[in-house]
Design a protein around this nucleic acid. Structure first.
Lengths: 214, 214
DNA sequence: ACTGATCTGTAGTACATATTACACAATGGT
DNA sequence: ACCATTGTGTAATATGTACTACAGATCAGT
């Protein structure tokens, strides 16, 4: 037994080399799965792109299913991070919602966001865990951010709601609007920063006036 | 050449027998594709369920792709029909929106609706036509119905909008809310008729008050 | 530089599945 | 009742792909 390693059940730091390969595999796998879906993506193709060896991949992940799960979940949680920082409780209601809404809609219609959405939903029956992760770290997290912001800021701006959670829900769905559908249907569909601003501003206006603000 | 058939290029009525087989194929195919997705569904399994013969299926549809397209598109357009009849321009705004909203949300979270949504989006990259059909006969159609209803009825109930189309968009998205996500994530998720009523009523309330009604 | 472990490259296995070929049975108009 | 057309059953082809086996290269710690 090693005398310097921690006596706990830690995996003894299989760090540098294996970890690098693992990262490369995960990245290539996420690309392939997000582009083609689970069934249509080929493991050999993933290895070819990642540069490693098929044997190593199977030693590290065990099966195509587990690789899919790991790759997509990692990509999901990474894509959401920037959105959380858009909430600033010191901004007045219209500006605050505008900032959150723009970050949200921008992520939704980005190619990466569309791909994640598509594959999470498309494979949800075979991989309920992936869908669960997507929901928890995606829509639910955003709703939570909006909800916290509304609770903290809405009263001093004259807005009130029967239920803050429901109001946050409504706001998120209004921002999504039809644009996510369009992006899902047409890969060439793009929203400029201006489009996003305008659409979010309209939603904020409808929302704030409905809640008694201004 | 037959002396009674039209001299045009009509397919000479291959009616009764072929049409019956065709229906059976389409139905079994839709079931399989909606359950497993395009890649994972097996043509042999479809034939086994439909009862016909593999050769006939290929003679009628040509390929798995074309079968998928025909089967899913037919199922899509059939699922939407009942929703259109929920719009009654003589009902006052709250009742009218309530009726449309209940029909909409009920269809969205029904097992069939969830399956159609999942497969349309999941296979949208490989089958953009299916996604297009889904959008046109589904969300777009509902928005159109809501939009027409609002334009016809909102003024006499004291509601006004900067843009009727956008307002219709918002209403539809508010009704969807988080429930469609939940249904997508959890196959056992169900909404009772009461749940639907309550959720739609809350959305109608928020929407009508935001638009200056009541 | 040496050694034990880990990664690499290639090739092979097992299996599933879309698609076709062909001989035979059922059908429907006359 | 006949006959051409169309559906049926089975089996074969061809291809792709997940996964494994194994010999050799590459690395990390001493």
């Amino acid at each position: 037994m090693p005398h310097r390693a921690a006596e706990s059940s830690e995996p003894v730091r299989p760090l540098s080399r294996g970890e690098a390969r693992r990262r490369a595999f995960l990245d290539a796998a996420a690309d392939a799965f997000l582009e083609h879906g689970f069934e249509a993506a080929s493991v050999n193709e993933i290895v070819r792109r990642a540069g490693g060896s098929l044997a190593t991949l199977y030693q590290q992940f065990g099966s195509k299913e587990q690789l899919f799960q790991a790759a997509v979940e990692e990509r999901v949680s990474r894509a959401i991070a920037p959105m959380v920082h858009a909430a600033d409780h010191n901004l007045p209601i219209r500006q605050g919602l505008q900032a959150i809404g723009e970050a949200f809609l921008g992520a939704l219609v980005s190619p990466g966001g569309v791909a994640i959405f598509r594959v999470s939903i498309g494979e949800a029956r075979k991989f309920p865990e992936v869908m669960r992760t997507f929901l928890l770290t995606g829509p639910d997290r955003v709703r939570q951010v909006v909800s916290a912001y509304l609770a903290a800021r809405a009263p001093q701006d004259g807005c009130s709601f029967a239920s803050v959670e429901r109001a946050a829900d409504y706001f998120c769905e209004m921002v999504r609007g039809r644009y996510q559908y369009r992006a899902l249907a047409d890969p060439s569909f793009q929203l400029s920063q201006d489009d996003i601003r305008v659409h979010v501003a309209a939603a904020v206006d409808f929302f704030v006036r409905g809640a008694g603000g201004d």
